[in-house]
Simulated assay, not measured.
Amino acid sequence: MGVVIRAAGEDDRELVVRLLDEAFQDDPVSGWVFPEREYRRTTHHRLMAAFTDIVLAEGRIDVTEDGTACALWLSMPAADGDGPDGGGGGDEADDAVRLRESVDPANARVEEIARLMAESHPADRAHEYLWMIGVAPARQGEGLGSALVQHVLDRCDREGLPAYLEASSERSTKLYERLGFTYADRTLDIPDGPRMWPMWREPVTGRDRS
């Protein structure tokens, strides 16, 4: 039986925050942002809630019908050239500050990770951005994450859109490679912290499938 997927709404907010909080408690990047385990346990959900609110307002969240996995997507336009690197650099900096102030005001790493990810984001082409994907720990390894990602990649292929993500572990890059993503030949190295792997996927056309 296939995985049933639906679009999340405002009523699903707490479900999505809980899924992300549970799924990313032991993630290397979350561990860098909140190094002390007990503090992470009590504070990490605020960051996941902020991310959820952003994507509910500006993007799309898909959830499995049984509520055990979710994926957060943003549709990214091509840059208009306003920022120093072709994007809205000032807006991104302000967004990072606001994120820190709303999540954990004394924690500079909340702002720093937001800045680093914004600065590394490709800006020359419109694309779908897989910001986060979370699977309940007890259901990991069952293919739910792959089904969620493929659900949007099928649309990308129909519409001729590329897709982008940052993998937070070498292990997860293998999953994304199976879905057609390729390593972008550069890592995002967090100062005194873990490494992330930007990955890009070109749309698959009818000719490519043959």
Rank of each mutant, 00 (worst) to 15 (best):
C156W: 14
E10C: 06
Y39N: 07
V29G: 02
D192C: 09
A108C: 00
M48A: 13
R37F: 00
T43N: 15
L179V: 03
G134F: 12
A118N: 15
S169D: 03
D26L: 04
G81V: 12
M76P: 00
E159Q: 14
T173R: 01
L188K: 02
E58H: 15
G134K: 00
A163R: 03
M1E: 09
A23W: 00
E10V: 08
R37M: 11
L116W: 11
I133A: 09
K174G: 02
L19Q: 03
W197K: 02
A138V: 05
G141A: 07
D21S: 14
D94N: 12
E14P: 00
V16L: 06
G143C: 03
R46L: 15
R201E: 10
G87Y: 01
I113D: 09
R37L: 14
R201G: 03
D82N: 04
D26G: 07
D185W: 03
E36F: 06
A126R: 14
P203M: 08
Y176A: 02
A96N: 05
T42E: 14
H45L: 11
A7I: 14
V29K: 03
T173V: 06
D95N: 11
A93L: 13
H45R: 15
W32A: 08
R207Q: 14
R100K: 09
W197E: 01
Y183H: 04
W73R: 04
D208S: 15
D21R: 02
G31V: 03
A167Q: 05
R13Y: 04
V3Y: 04
V149I: 10
L165T: 01
E166C: 05
E119T: 05
L130M: 05
W197L: 01
D85A: 13
L161C: 07
P77Y: 09
L72T: 08
M1H: 04
E119R: 13
A78S: 11
P191F: 11
E10Q: 08
P191N: 06
A114D: 11
W197Q: 04
V29I: 08
A57Y: 00
E170N: 01
G160A: 14
D208F: 01
A138Y: 02
P35T: 13
E10P: 00
D26H: 08
G134Q: 10
A136T: 11
H45E: 15
D53A: 14
A50Q: 10
R171V: 01
V3L: 08
A108K: 04
L153I: 13
G59Q: 05
D95A: 15
D154P: 00
R171W: 00
G2H: 13
A167T: 04
T42Y: 09
L153F: 06
E142G: 05
R100P: 05
R109N: 12
L56T: 11
I61G: 06
R40Y: 13
S210H: 13
M117T: 14
G145V: 03
D85Y: 14
L153R: 06
E36Q: 10
D62N: 10
A108P: 12
G160E: 13
Q25I: 13
R41A: 15
A93G: 04
C156Y: 08
D185N: 11
D124C: 00
D189P: 01
S30V: 05
E159G: 00
A57V: 04
S102A: 15
V33H: 00
M76R: 14
L74I: 10
A138E: 12
T182V: 15
A114V: 06
P194H: 07
A8K: 07
R60S: 09
T64W: 02
P137Y: 06
R115A: 07
G145D: 06
